[in-house]
């Protein structure tokens, strides 16, 4: 079993551990695709910092890769944070508003 195979096995084991019964269901397809989507997105996002400085982009890409590998699967966190619970949404709205304000004021 090569290294790619074992990484795949690890991800699959993580994901299937959430579900009882069969290893391949409608839900597992969605969660697997979602996990991959988020992984690629964070890497793309990290690489995007090349706009400011290429070495910064490289460092952030490496950091993102390590963090994703460590914290995977991240889809469960995304799922949890996306609840329509008022307190949670309000928390993120306040964070967002602060970021918008801070970034634009910093731009000045």
């Amino acid at each position: 079993m090569g290294s790619i195979d074992s990484l795949y096995d690890r991800v699959k084991r993580y994901l299937t551990s959430f579900f009882a019964g069969e290893g391949s269901t409608d839900a597992i397809t969605g969660y697997s695709s979602g996990e991959l989507q988020m992984t690629v997105f964070f890497m793309v996002l990290a690489a995007m910092f090349r706009v400011f400085m290429i070495p910064l982009g490289i460092v952030l890409l490496l950091v993102a890769t390590i963090l994703i590998a460590y914290f995977a699967p991240i889809i469960r966190t995304v799922d949890r944070e996306n609840s329509s619970d008022l307190n949670r949404v309000l928390f993120w709205v306040i964070i967002y508003f602060s970021i918008i304000l801070a970034v634009t004021l910093w731009g000045r």
């Binding site: 969660y31 979602g34 889809i75 996306n82 967002y96």
Partner: peptide, 22 residues
């Protein structure tokens, strides 16, 4: 840039959440 960041995040989070619905 702020508008673009909000938009890109919305695209990704929206589609990821769509993927896991039943």
């Amino acid at each position: 840039e702020v508008m673009l960041s909000i938009s890109v995040l919305t695209m990704i989070i929206g589609i990821v959440m769509a993927l896991i619905q039943t």
